[in-house]
Design a protein around this nucleic acid. Structure first.
Lengths: 256, 256
DNA sequence: TATTTCTGTTAGATGAATCTAACAATAATA
DNA sequence: TATTATTGTTAGATTCATCTAACAGAAATA
């Protein structure tokens, strides 16, 4: 039923991955090493080894050293590869801090499908093979992200189209959500402003590409009411001001 | 201890998200709707509602309609935003098939940290704001990925640097892993060949940017032994032939 | 050899998330 | 109103993953 991978749960994948990691440096893997490696009590390791042995993924008998079977090593390597791929995407492309990236990757590695994994690997190859793209990401997005790290600070406007005014070649096309007349819709192009403001809007679902409709424009005292993905949301005018939209479906009046 | 988000587990996030989703179309959320929405038995919903109510994330009493509190709606929206972000990354950037992307996103949404999420949102804004990048991804990576879908087929060589010969402007710099002399290392640049071959190499950890060292070159009958991340691996010569490397640390002899 | 220490195992408990089957409350229909 | 769905709840079981505490086996040391 909810048996994802023939009985191999995320936790078991972690054990396999740990065994592979240990065998990379030590010549043998013992229960103790695995427990330390996964920050788990040795008492938790034994039953996991039993299950892995039943599934023919390790060779194990009471008190013996632990070895991976071919099948187990395959799963271990695949899991490790997923982990590395995700962690590299987070650090190298998105610029997530490495401790955090490890943690995210550790949790997500069990849920990335084969086909997405294959594509993510291709993505890295593509970036590496395409110097133009690499340059764009590094000089453009990369230096913009540095700005994200210094809380609330703004990054080099010349380079970063995201925070604050930015280079935005199509700045002219964009208007603030606050200016959207009632009944009209727009697609979110980007969120201006400091980190905290951005984050709280993103948390509410204000993400590039998503359509917003204005239900009731706000004032200084009255929050705007908008629809996002069909959900009604109240946001203060100050928040609406920093959401930049590309207008679609201009049925109502036209504003500046 | 291992309490990630103040008692709100991944499963509870799913329930909150489902409630938000239901309230987007229906005017009320009932146990039945939630059960249907999450493909879960109604008997599983009741205890979940109790826990959510205890945590002050929904308003609920026996047999009542279910409403989100402000706090609960916040978590629900954040989870939905993560979901959308991941699912869009998978479909729009990586080109994963949408059913699969949904599934992956559903599982990963509980594990993406705030900071990675923030950066992923910025990534979308950056791509949208940078027409050059958008074009590159779409015409280059995008059309290359189409090739991935037709099993084993090759995509337009003019445009795709990944599969087969590709445009590879720096083709000259690259040499096959099979040609790497013993003791020498290289960094993986890309994997040539059909989909199945690529996938099995990726599964073993052959991913762009990773360093490989040759332990023992192979022959038609004898597999190569290489080291990847410190792990020893045997691969058939035919597989080594399609791994393209950028050489580093040329201590040994020089090959063509 | 006897003792101590380290390592691994077992037993038993806990908590999360689910299920089925039986029951209760409500709503719809005859 | 009486009967029949439909909907929600409870009880009880299961599975997974973990823990602590107690014990057993092996190795190191006295």
């Amino acid at each position: 039923m909810s048996d994802p991978k023939n009985g191999v749960t995320g936790s078991l994948e972690d054990y396999l991955e740990a065994i592979l990691r240990i065998l990379g440096t030590s010549s043998v893997a013992r229960v103790r090493d695995i427990a330390d490696n996964l920050q788990v009590s040795p008492a938790s390791v034994t039953p996991a080894m039993k299950r892995l042995a039943e599934l023919d993924l390790i060779r194990y008998s009471k008190r013996s050293y632990i070895e991976l079977t071919e099948k187990g090593a395959g799963i271990a390597r695949r899991t490790a590869a997923r982990h590395r791929l995700l962690s590299r995407f987070l650090t190298e492309i998105l610029g997530t801090e490495s401790t955090q990236a490890e943690e995210d990757a550790c949790a997500m590695e069990h849920h990335l499908s084969d086909s997405s994994m294959e594509r993510l690997a291709a993505f890295f190859e593509f970036i590496a093979a395409c110097p133009e793209l690499g340059r764009l990401l590094e000089s453009g997005f990369g230096s913009c992200l540095e700005g994200l790290d210094q809380l609330g600070s703004r990054c080099s406007k010349a380079v970063c189209p995201i925070i604050d005014t930015g280079c935005g070649e199509e700045q002219g096309d964009l208007s603030s959500l606050a200016e959207l007349p009632p009944g009209c819709s727009g697609t979110i192009a980007r969120i201006k402003g400091g980190r905290a403001d951005r984050r709280s809007l993103i948390d509410m679902g204000f993400i590039q590409g998503v359509e917003v409709t204005m239900d009731r424009p706000g004032s200084d005292e009255l929050p705007c009411i908008v629809r996002l993905d069909g959900y009604r949301l109240d946001i203060p005018l100050s928040a609406a001001l920093i959401v930049l939209l590309r207008r679609v479906d201009v049925t109502g009046g036209g504003s500046a």
